[in-house]
């Protein structure tokens, strides 16, 4: 059913400087679904960001968000579209002259109709949930890696986005330190109205969260399946990736 879909990527071909980065990519994401997209470094997973999040419309095919093509968005609709999607990338991008709580409240201060007191209460709850109480007045340069990630994560979900897009956000992190984030992600997925896309090199870390897995290679989808299929499929690309084997259908430079 179309109304259940939050995101639909249809036959997308994305070319930059004469190089085809994504070739005939199609997939869809339902409400309440958590998808892990993985692949090697030049597989094209990073270029999905340009097409889905950044709003670069110079691609062939179409991307529909809640049934509407993002190609038809004007300047302001694109801003609203970005406001509706929570995005977190591996560089985190915390504003260096703002404290933890100011960073988290920034999207709310800018967009939301909540009062100052309501924003403060809501941000304090997020800070408590993520164990950031001890550092809420600190600036990013005073934080540890996991605190930076937690702050950026809190900021990305502050607006209660229907789609959360996490791109290489957990790489180089100690998973024990960020267990609170995984708890929040599990709760979000259990709500059935919030969707999640995780772009990563380590799909095995998200088996407890995700229910769909897509593998890219050379700008194409080479594997797509459920959690069980990801675990037990004999897809040669998947096996080569999971076993870190240089021998296989993928030629790794």
């Amino acid at each position: 059913m179309l109304e259940e879909l939050i995101l639909e990527v249809k036959n997308v071909k994305y070319t930059r400087d004469g190089v085809t980065l994504l070739n005939n990519i199609s997939f869809s994401l339902k409400k309440g679904e958590a998808m892990v997209i993985f692949g090697t470094e030049d597989s094209g997973i990073s270029h999905l960001f340009d097409v889905i999040i950044r709003g670069d419309v110079s691609f062939e095919g179409d991307v529909l968000y809640k049934g509407s093509s993002i190609k038809e968005l004007d300047y302001f609709s694109l801003m609203e579209y970005k406001e509706e999607i929570g995005y977190l990338h591996g560089d985190y991008g915390l504003i260096s002259n703002l404290s933890v709580e100011q960073n988290i409240s920034l999207p709310l201060e800018y967009h939301s109709s909540l009062s100052g007191a309501e924003i403060k209460n809501y941000v304090n709850k997020l800070i408590f949930d993520l164990n950031l109480d001890h550092c809420k007045k600190l600036r990013p340069f005073q934080l540890s890696r996991s605190e930076i990630l937690k702050t950026a994560f809190a900021r990305s979900i502050a607006n209660e986005p229907d789609l959360l897009y996490l791109e290489h956000a957990f790489e180089n992190q100690c998973y024990l330190n960020i267990i609170t984030i995984f708890d929040i992600l599990k709760k979000r997925i259990a709500r059935k109205d919030k969707s999640l896309i995780i772009v990563t090199y380590r799909p095995e870390n998200f088996i407890d969260i995700a229910n769909r897995f897509i593998m890219f290679f050379n700008g194409r989808i080479v594997f797509e399946g459920s959690k069980d299929e990801f675990l037990y499929s004999q897809n040669p690309y998947l096996i080569q990736y999971k076993t870190n084997n240089p021998e296989g259908p993928m030629v790794i430079l």
Binding site: I53, R54, M79, E80, Y81, K82, E83, E84, I85, Y87, H89, D91, Y92, G93, L94, I95, S96, N97, L106, P107, Y110, H111, A152, R155, N159
Partner: peptide, 25 residues
């Protein structure tokens, strides 16, 4: 300097992706 450093450390990108009109902001 502040804006260049913010651009380099992807703070401006992060703001844009929050739907913040960075030119205005």
């Amino acid at each position: 300097t502040e804006i260049s450093v913010q651009k380099w450390s992807k703070e401006i990108l992060a703001m844009e992706l929050m739907g913040i009109d960075t030119k205005l902001f």
